[in-house]
Design a protein around this nucleic acid. Structure first.
Length: 566
RNA sequence: GCCCCUGUAGUUCAACGGAUAGAACAGGAGACUUCUAAUCUCCCGAUAGAGGUUCGAUUCCUCUCAGGGGCACCA
């Protein structure tokens, strides 16, 4: 990359002047007027050696000018001592040619070459609804997986689903009551999932407010573990199956294909054993429970096996790390959950460090914010949830309404791609750790800073290229436009953006970049006639092609589909 | 009470210690006989407060205020 050429040049120049700089900081100035790259080395060194920063910047710049580099057109000193680099026409043309050649691999790198990485996300619970929180985890996890893959790693997607625990008992308790009342047929029809969600909410409410129900639910929970009650077994198996099948439909809609599925029913027993084996060494007994004293590491105490002898999520997560590693010999394991698990996971990692130090070292926890409803907090316990399905459905209805006059082949399919794109964009446009204040009407936008904005720019570019094809005007990079376009000044940066997103596990850098790029393309489109009988048309068509490649690869990294027409 | 995270235009978000703090939505003014107006062009508008470190602070440190999360048998 040019970046490396510039860095090395600066480094050499500095050592020629018998000076030293450990890290050369290079950035893109916010304004193209300040060039394509800028460095502050002169200011940093000047401070150390007590020289005037502007003077030093001039010295460095003079030296750099002596070396003729074809990628650099000019170097200038500006401001308090910035050294600004302006890239050459030749460089830009070359980069356009290169992108055309690389095509769908454009932007990919090899910083994670040959690494095996397992990444866990989404994690919905059977018997509960797949709500917009899961959607958020899925959008972020899927995008990070793709970024990792694009950086050369083998990424395996893992989904950890809670098929045992009190929540299943709560739902089954309510289902049994319904059955007794003879209401709602349990496992037929489309409403099944709604019923399961309601059943969970009903059970959870009873558990909190009714002591008799609480005891009944606890009994059911035990029976689910012991598998000794036919009626419960049947409700459990059916409910589990229907939930999981339904989740598969959602994954398909969202564009995720999991390589591994893990269940709490399998991590539970192993986790319990693991904890019991280490009593006295790592864990200790206290009030009938087995706990881990996190205070020794500046954390807090957590229960790993409760006083009823059942493993908690903590114990299960320890086992999960081990099971994952057995099934897939990973070099790195990434676990994505909501922020509320942040402190929790630190304790688990500390315990893991003592049991499986090598696994703890390979495990990285990433937490994201939650979708916070402007109307109040969402809770599946109270039944106050927005399911992913209903959200996608409503957005899709709006999209279809907008498309009613359009003449498009697969309207339904495209509308769904746009709906999912709009939702994913609203999640991936901001830094992953922050909460999203979610307003049903405002959050999903079709205009401006939005998923459809990117998709629209893509469809527009496709349409332009289609016209060029019809008129038989071919793209060509031989004859360039005299003045370098802003498009060219942004396009070559794509791999750098991905690299940064990869380093920081932050897809939003890509979102921001693509939106800026699409904006520049839209301006270009409105200013220039791309397909016409003129000498500059072939190059403008080439630019459009390169824009299309970049936006497509970028959208793929976000897990957003790019329809040709909309 | 202790520990973590977050406070940026009216609103929702950007800004890898740098140059004039960027967008979008909302508000105001324009642009479709021309490749898709889900678009483009222009205007209005912000760093919670107080100190400190630095040539330079939205960014780092301290305190205050505000919001969120966690802190023993939920996940």
């Amino acid at each position: 990359m040019v970046r490396d050429i510039l860095k090395n040049t600066i480094k050499e120049t500095i050592s020629d002047l018998s000076l030293e700089a450990d890290d050369i900081h290079l950035e893109h100035p916010s304004d193209f007027a300040y060039g394509d790259y800028s460095t502050n080395v002169a200011m940093r060194i000047a401070k150390q050696i007590g020289e005037n920063p502007k003077e030093l910047a001039r010295e460095i710049t003079d030296k750099i000018r002596e070396i003729k580099i074809k990628e650099i057109e000019k170097v200038k000193v500006a401001g308090a001592g910035f050294i600004n680099f302006y890239l050459s026409r030749e460089f830009f043309t070359q980069s356009i040619k290169e992108i055309l050649k690389i095509g769908e691999k454009w932007g990919s790198g090899n910083s994670l070459k040959n690494q095996k990485i397992i990444i866990e996300y989404t994690d919905p619970n059977p018997f509960k609804e797949f709500h917009i929180g899961h959607l958020m985890s899925n959008a972020i996890g899927e995008s990070i997986s793709r970024i990792i893959e694009f950086s050369g790693a083998e990424a395996k997607r893992a989904n950890y689903q809670g098929d045992v625990g009190l929540h299943t008992a709560k739902a089954i308790w309510a289902l049994m009551r319904r059955k007794q009342r003879g209401s709602t047929p349990l496992f037929t029809g489309d409403e099944v999932l709604g019923v399961l969600g309601e059943a969970y909410a009903e059970g959870a409410k009873a558990y909190d407010g009714d002591d008799i129900a609480k005891e009944e639910i606890k009994k059911i929970n035990k029976k689910i573990y012991d598998k000794n009650d036919n009626e419960i077994n049947s409700l459990y198996e059916n409910g589990r199956k229907i939930s999981l099948e339904h989740f598969e439909e959602i994954y398909k809609k969202l564009g995720t294909k999991f390589d591994y599925y893990f269940f709490e029913s399998e991590t539970g027993p192993i986790g319990k054993e693991l904890v019991k084996k280490n009593i006295g060494k790592i864990f200790e007994e206290s009030n009938g429970a087995i706990i881990f004293r996190g205070e020794k590491a500046g954390l807090h105490t957590r229960v790993f096996v409760n006083s009823e002898g059942l493993p908690t999520y903590e114990a299960k997560d320890l086992a999960l790390a081990k099971i994952k590693n057995e099934r897939y010999d990973y070099e790195k394991s990434i676990v994505i959950t909501a922020n509320e698990q942040k402190e929790y996971y630190k304790v688990v990692l500390e315990a893991m460090k003592q049991i499986y130090p090598e696994l703890a070292k390979k495990t990285k926890h990433i937490s994201h914010g939650i979708l916070r409803l402007s109307s109040g907090k969402m809770s599946s316990r109270t039944g106050l949830v927005i399911t992913s399905e209903s959200l996608i459905g409503e957005v899709k209805t709006k999209v279809l309404d907008k498309m009613k006059d359009a003449d498009i082949a697969d309207k339904e399919g495209v509308a769904e791609q746009i709906a999912v794109g709009a939702i994913k964009y609203s999640i991936l446009k901001q830094s992953a750790g922050k909460d999203i204040v979610f307003d049903f009407d405002k959050s999903i936008s079709f205009e401006g800073d939005s998923g459809p904005y990117l998709q629209y720019a893509y469809a527009r570019a496709s349409s332009v290229l289609e016209k060029a094809r019809r008129q038989n005007i071919k793209s060509d990079t031989k004859k360039v436009i005299a003045e370098t376009t802003e498009l060219e000044k942004l396009l070559y940066r794509f791999p750098e953006v991905i690299e940064r997103a990869n380093n920081e596990f932050e897809p939003h850098y890509i979102t921001t970049y693509l939106t800026e790029l699409a904006g520049v393309f839209n301006s270009f489109y409105s200013r220039e006639k791309i397909v016409e009988e003129s000498g500059s048309s072939p190059y403008k068509i080439a630019l459009t092609e390169v824009f299309k490649i970049t936006i497509k690869n970028g959208l793929w990294l976000l897990g957003i589909k790019a329809p040709e027409n909309m």
